[in-house]
Design a protein around this nucleic acid. Structure first.
Lengths: 156, 156
DNA sequence: CTCCCGCTGTACAGGCTGTCCACTGAAATC
DNA sequence: GATTTCAGTGGACAGCCTGTACAGCGGGAG
């Protein structure tokens, strides 16, 4: 169920150079091509690797502003709020968290001014009682997974 | 600088089926292969597509618990705190936000009990004054980008 | 009206993928 | 100690895709 050192090295390698392909990866790792192929198949089957979709940068799309909004939800309105937020393209992510009907969502906007429009659209819904927004100024640690992969590989 | 409808369709297609490759994509989109190749090159050059790295699921690695922690930082300790959090593998993401020395980070852990260990490690650092943690219960909208891509393509 | 740019269709060589097989070595089982 | 099982190895094959190049075409900009 976990991953071993070879799995870890493989994932790390693919993360750094996704274009290399199975054959080149086997050369870099010093194993047979079939081994890499089998490992990859297993990692995908186990759900460890979900896929190799394109990583799109919202900033390059014209949405350089990121914010996190904490939403307080009226009792029993959870499903409606979820459905509402799903329809807003600027909502990149939504979580329900511990606490009284709280949700946390990640937003992007074209500018600080545009963020106001997005927030209005997000909170302009009956089930939402209150919202607190934190605008992101810096991103010292962009979403990463490699350190965790190496930790998981070490634990084996 | 923006993207057009074809770019949008291409990104959406690659997001759904990353394995298809340039030739198959050109067939699906009804354009010449060279066009897809040129579009992809441009999207990567513009930074719209950062890469095609593997999408790893922390839960499948043995870290099914996610939490968000808001940290209050002592004046002038920002850099030190960043350096500290960078060394914690369970910190997947770190942002500095508006407000007095506030940071927001995403954490994962092996269990709710293990989350305590992670939090202790995160906040066990001088520059951190206070921490508030919200544990994720559900994830109704997983990190997504396609709706935004389609919106950006429409705006052209 | 003309230039420029992007798209098309085509061509070519090279390399990679998917798949199969027999062999080896080590760990687990009896 | 002998055997079964499993993962990895090295090799082979056909098929397809990639990277690259080039000439022709059409529309938009000047």
């Amino acid at each position: 169920m976990g991953i071993d050192a070879l799995d870890g090295r493989l994932i790390t390698l693919l993360d750094r150079e996704p274009r290399i392909g199975v054959l080149e990866a086997s050369r870099r790792l010093g194993v047979a091509r079939g081994t890499v192929q089998a490992r990859l198949d297993r990692l995908r089957a186990n759900g460890v690797i979900r896929g190799f979709g394109p990583q799109v940068d919202p900033a390059a799309l014209g949405y350089p502003v990121t914010a996190f909004a904490t939403l307080e939800i009226k009792q029993g309105q959870g499903a409606d709020v979820r459905a509402h937020l799903t329809t807003v393209p600027e909502v990149l992510e939504l979580h329900t968290t511990t606490g009284q009907g709280d949700m946390l969502c990640r937003l992007v906007a074209r500018s600080n001014a545009d963020l106001q429009r997005v927030i209005d659209r997000v909170v302009g819904f009956d089930g939402i009682v209150r919202a607190a927004t934190a605008i992101v100024m810096e991103n010292p640690v962009p979403l990463r997974i490699i350190p965790l992969v190496e930790q998981a590989a070490r634990d084996t």
